[in-house]
Design a binder for these strands. Structure first.
Lengths: 233, 233
DNA sequence: ATAATAGTGTCTTTTAGACAATATCAC
DNA sequence: GTGATATTGTCTAAAAGACACTATTAT
């Protein structure tokens, strides 16, 4: 692989980290998990959760461990996918750090867990988070993550991962509306979802609403891709 | 970022590499650039071109340099995008190597350039390449890259990057047919492309064919995304 | 009954797909 | 003329979008 004889051991080492964009729905709004940095660099600045990749851990496991540590939730129902890798030489002033970013999509999660090394972990509405000046290049990572989520729900059934195991059509529609920031016609949305084979499976039950007619509930179906996609106007 | 005080300098270092899936059209077929490894590990086995990321180079520049070194072509007209990052602890037996893979899409390129450290660089048809046992996890990277290309041309105008600056509709259709491995109706394809605003711009010229009526030529338009997408299947 | 939300039906417009018909070249 | 490829036209089917209408609850 080396073009010229190149011994990486002869150079200052790289560190490899994972950083996570963890998105969830709370009160009808899309939120991201942020925390404040407890130490330099960028001490006190909001940042995405992350951590170093240990020598024997693979990248996915490293990301899953950060996810579990911050949310306290077993990773089973949470969708986790690689987003992109960020490696500008000066992105971390301490040393050369290459960070593999991951995108996690989850249903309404509890308040995040603080551990000794991080302060003030919290759910922040996306609109608010994107106005903040985040540590490192986390502003870019966050915006790439949100754009990925917007586009993934067009072509895949991933929007259901923002819902609990059983959900109503208006909850699912609420996910699209929150992620895309636009309102959708309930009638046409309903027809579109139910005519896409295996997107959702009716449970046969229904659930009372605060107001109005009770809504039927559905579970995730086996389909992963949407053919044709749902159009973002 | 560290959960526990963790000093990455206290651990065996990571190396970071870039590996490239360089795709091009040759004689109506999709080809990938492969070479044979000149040294251990996997000496003599076919592999993707790649190289170490140097301490002061960013990831994109590192990928561009590999691209230029192997193809001898200035990178300007070649589309290059990050694919994914691969970091299983044992993927390279020498040390822990995390590789950032890139996807390059280019029009018909010349024969690749051999340099002292690589042997037998060559264009290999995709069907053939995917049957080979490549070095490292390059088989996986190649298949992820090809799948990414298949999906990118559905939703974006990137197929034009497999064509020269001026191209005919049947050349563009040939790209779709080669990448997707299916034939498309010329009449419907033509209408679909031309009714997508800014996908292509007519040059006003036409070009003689080996047989039949001369074909009008087009240039790439400013559109990047396809709304609605072009459907596979 | 009224208000509110869920869900159905219908009509129009857009797009996809099949495929016939015409155009323009080489020979 | 024939054969080949390019390009246009036409018809049908599928999907999207607008929106009226019906259904089921709480008060």
């Amino acid at each position: 692989m080396p073009k010229k004889p190149y011994d990486p051991r002869a150079f200052p080492p790289f560190a490899v980290t994972v950083d996570l964009v963890i998105l969830t729905m709370r009160e009808g709004q899309l939120h991201v998990l942020l925390l404040d940095r407890a130490a330099a660099p960028f001490k006190g600045r909001p940042a995405l959760p992350g951590g170093f990749v240990r020598p024997t851990k693979n990248l996915l496991t490293s990301a899953q461990e950060v996810l579990a540590a911050k949310t306290g939730v077993s990773i089973a129902p949470i969708h986790l996918e690689q987003l992109a890798t960020y490696g500008e030489p000066k992105r971390d002033p301490r040393m050369r750090v290459v960070s593999v970013a991951w995108l996690a999509l989850a249903a309404n999660l509890p308040e995040p867990i603080a551990d000794p090394e991080t302060t003030n972990p919290r759910w922040v509405p996306i609109d608010e988070a994107s106005q903040l000046r985040l540590a490192f290049d986390h502003g870019q990572i966050l915006s790439d993550g949100v754009e990925r989520a917007r586009s993934r729900i067009e072509y895949t059934t991933l929007a259901t991962h923002f819902c609990d195991d059983e959900f109503t059509m208006s909850e699912l529609r609420g996910v699209y509306e929150a992620v895309w920031g636009q309102v959708l016609d309930p009638a046409n949305f309903d027809r579109k979802i139910r005519t896409t084979v295996d997107f959702v499976v009716p449970t046969g039950d229904s659930r009372k609403q605060l107001k109005g007619r009770p809504a039927r509930t559905y579970k995730r179906g086996p389909a992963k891709d949407l053919q044709p996609p749902i159009r973002r106007s």
